[in-house]
Design a protein around this nucleic acid. Structure first.
Lengths: 348, 348
DNA sequence: CTGTTAGCGCATTCAA
DNA sequence: TTGAATGCGCTAACAG
């Protein structure tokens, strides 16, 4: 046996003054073994009431805070989930975050947010960040393909759940929205309101999402014997809606406009107002996403509402399923139906 | 010396099939030592071009991803910063997040977001989460006192920067806004527009923030010989603005309303419209925060704009200062001036 | 139920 | 420059 003099931890003496007390300091202070402290932390039930209290006292006295890095390393797992949002400025994604946070909290999981800001490099950076952090899983509102980095994460055995994916991914679970139905609902609504000459403002017409919505509009129009025009817009923002709307309203006869975003709808309403066209009397307008401001505009905007909160909850539920089922898990896709919220912009 | 037979890692054989290859696997594959791989990862310069290429090849072939837990543990530091926002549904905070993310990215720091949702328990939970993760620092948009958990984080030697603090904290750096000036600007603006009978809608009148804004309004009114009424509202939301606005407009003679939030302003405008009072002709309304929707309402809302993006950038800059200066650091507070954005709701 | 011990995967000495 | 050894703080397995 070596000399007991050999100090395991030379600076033990002033350990009370360390900025980050360790479990060992707590054990020493409480007069128990290190494993016991770990137990009161992770298995409070199997420890004596008496020791537990003693240890807890030491913990608060020392201001002990677990080191999650060490914890994750030793336990080989994490109780953190990452959520990557396309746009935290869009209230739909905020709703998703809220739902996910609520469900995660109930499952004792921590939720970390990241904003990809519609930028692939950011999305990929955060995917890698979460991968490095060995999170229990990641929720991703994905940009369009390629999803190679996400697949790399999957390859490391880390579950990924896609939220608002535009198509089911065979390698993941997904929470989808029936976008075609959304378009159909919007178009049907204005058709029932008496519209005959519809226009769909295709912002970002290359997005599969937008094309699905257009498909639904087309289906509704086809069944009603009305006409449908499609005008393209560079993006989904207000400015685009206003510009495209202005041109469109000047050049063609139209009595209803269906937009794949609320911002676009607001822009079109502005254009109409500028031209002295009354909404909804002369022109009905419907948006999409049910953003919070849609109901707050002076002409509240009718919209196709997506259940963002529920989608967030569902995403966590799917993730938990996958985590618990392990290799026996079979990916599945849950598709939610949107619903129309009629507001003044389309009510005659 | 013990028998060299003792296997350091029994399952080394199938390590290529592990879901998470380690640095050692990379080293083996590249035919170099473990320390060398670490070097190409962290000090690429001090390694031979040739070995570097070899190692990088092995990394991609194996799909190696660093384990940030092990990394943090060994290095005793982290390149991650946490940002806790009061309300990610409020575009001001989104702007702050954007600014912070940009500045953090330039400093090679990762930014993680959390939403306290105006809830103390959530704020404290996330503070502790970041503390456990041993982040390099945390940016906090704080709820009002007490800040005890934040101080605990500070006690562990972890810098905290307060953003939109209502008063400077001697233990931290802060990014503040001259709220009194904001109130003054809003009131002065309507006074110049010819208003004589002002009302300040004090949502959450207990918040120091709100009281500061009111103080600014009072100063402006006092210097102009106009009258000022103050009505309280339970919160800063649209509904409150509408209700309080309705009562106020019925019961007193007023020609300008100053609100400490854009939502409140929108509510007041709604109430006015309901009552057939024309905005801005008969009633001028000014909001606060320059939320994105403020310019999008049909009657665009004049507002006191805070430089959210710059505030986020500044917060990171202050944090970096503190990290680099270490114990020599002296906390400082940067106070930014808001500016008024006149829009239709107050322009006659 | 309590105390002891062996790594988790990596950064970082220090020799060579 | 490169390679072998040490331990970061903790969990988990096991012996008392």
């Amino acid at each position: 046996m070596a000399e007991s003099q050999a100090p395991v931890r030379p600076d033990n003496g002033d350990s009370s003054r360390r900025s980050n007390p360790r479990i060992q300091d707590v054990a020493q202070r409480a007069g128990v073994a290190i494993g016991t402290v770990s137990n009161v932390l992770n298995n409070p039930d199997i420890v004596t009431e008496q020791t537990r209290v003693k240890v807890e006292a030491a913990i608060t006295e020392l201001g002990f805070v677990r080191n999650s890095a060490a914890r994750a390393l030793a336990a080989r797992r994490t109780d953190t989930v990452g959520l990557i949002l396309i746009d935290i400025g869009n209230s739909l994604f905020v709703d998703i975050a809220r739902g996910a946070e609520s469900a995660a909290g109930q499952a004792q999981l921590k939720l970390l947010l990241a904003n990809s800001d519609s930028t692939r490099s950011k999305q990929d950076n955060y995917l890698e960040l979460f991968d490095q952090a060995r999170v229990a899983g990641v929720l991703l509102t994905p940009l369009e393909e390629p999803l190679d980095v996400a697949h790399a994460v999957l390859g490391h055995g880390r579950p990924v759940v896609l939220v608002i994916a535009t198509s089911p991914d065979p390698l993941t679970c997904s929470v989808m929205v029936n976008e075609e139905l959304g378009g159909y609902l919007a178009a049907t609504h204005v058709l029932h309101g008496g519209a005959h000459r519809l226009v769909f403002v295709a912002g970002c017409p290359d997005l599969r999402l937008i094309r699905r919505r257009l498909a639904g509009v087309e289906r509704a129009v086809a069944g009603a014997g009305a006409s449908l025009g499609v005008v393209e817009a560079p993006n989904l923002a207000i400015g685009a809606g206003r510009e495209v709307g202005h041109q469109m309203l000047l050049s063609q006869s139209v009595d209803a406009v269906v937009c794949p975003s609320d911002l676009l709808a607001v822009g079109v309403i502005k254009a109409a107002t500028d031209l002295g066209i009354r909404v909804p009397d002369e022109l009905m307008v419907v948006g999409y996403d049910d953003n919070h401001f849609a109901s707050e505009s002076s002409i509240p905007v009718s919209t196709v509402s997506l259940p963002g909160y529920r989608m967030g909850e569902l995403a966590i539920e799917l993730l938990l399923e996958e985590i618990h089922q392990g290799s026996a898990h079979v990916h599945r896709t849950v598709t939610l139906d949107p619903h129309l919220i009629p507001r003044r912009s389309s009510l005659r």
